[in-house]
Design a binder for these strands. Sequence first.
DNA 1: TAGATTGTTAATCGATTAACAATC
DNA 2: TAGATTGTTAATCGATTAACAATC
Lengths: 212, 212
Amino acid sequence: MEQHEISKAVIRRLPRYYRYLGDLMDAGVERISSAELSAKMNVTASQIRQDLNNFGGFGQQGYGYNVKYLYNEIAKILGLDNVHNLVIIGAGKLGQAIANYSSFEKRGFIIKAMFDNNKDYFGRKVGDIEIMNVDELSDYLSNNNIDIAAITVPKEAVNPIADILVKCGIKAVWNFAPVDLELPKGIIVENVHLLDSLMQLSYNLTEYEHTR
Amino acid sequence: MEQHEISKAVIRRLPRYYRYLGDLMDAGVERISSAELSAKMNVTASQIRQDLNNFGGFGQQGYGYNVKYLYNEIAKILGLDNVHNLVIIGAGKLGQAIANYSSFEKRGFIIKAMFDNNKDYFGRKVGDIEIMNVDELSDYLSNNNIDIAAITVPKEAVNPIADILVKCGIKAVWNFAPVDLELPKGIIVENVHLLDSLMQLSYNLTEYEHTR
DNA sequence: TAGATTGTTAATCGATTAACAATC
DNA sequence: TAGATTGTTAATCGATTAACAATC
């Protein structure tokens, strides 16, 4: 059966559905209709049903969706039923912030090690996670089952790091440096550009001042 | 003259254009055609021209675009010709990472103060930026010209903070907590959901493994 | 002037919304 | 069974791409 390509817009919304369903579950809600969820999330009920039906029929006519079931199904779609091992490259404040953030671990993203080129850091720990010499990165990746590398180094340091990652067969890169990383086909890249986000905010702020 | 609404998709691309033009400027490139830029950025030349023409005609037939001029014009569109004063609420690792990140200051985003509820932090500094008692937030906002508040506190702490910010007339909030903040109309909210981003990465990773 | 490349209109494509038959 | 609400098809809307006349 030929599966049609799911659009990026849909995939961007999945974690949001997941978050709201998690909150509903915590609140003890057992079932919800697309109309009710629509009201909470400020999206149309139609869009919710369309989005979900890309992956299967998770609801029941006349009833709606079972919150817990849908929550778990979305988790599967997002691959959260598998554990993913991460390393963080760059042990500065941002790398440490990520290492510290317990919600990642809760969703199966396990941070195994951090790397830096500053020898003052070597051997220190962030929580349980050891900071290692970046010279050992290549060896480490060869001997451990790491799926994802988070890059939190300065712009200039990204390319040499990326070369090592590609050479060692990394599957995915979560990049925080302000460059659009180009890696060989098949390697997933997810960029987080904080400055871009702040500039979008600034645009909206400026826009607002212009038009009122 | 009635100005038509610019779509979010366009606004999301502006910082990216800005970034590439900055790189070109640094590389000493004086002019560029939409076709050349298109090749570098993996977008169509048509889209570049359409996007820019939402804001004005910045190019010249037969010549292309002057890199420096276009760079500065986009800066104006994004509101980067004005200085924006920020406070950071939440002095944990993520707040510190943002406080430390010099690129923000370079673009006119000036971090004035940080706030936390943990008294161990009070009076400490991150770089030049003092960490204050969150009880003083309201007073501080009243007496200083702050446009933007970055929120880097845990989920549970967001709503009381948001109430204070709204009461003190904050213009924009840059929210890092995993909730979709609902503020009164006119207040700009930009959410950065790192876990959502990681889940999208996970989806793509899983997708890839399914379909090859 | 001839060549290049924009600005802009028209065509296409894809995503969102509406509508409703299927069905619990 | 009647009512509710999904899954899904069709209609609409908006964004992207193509094409080309305008013009430097």
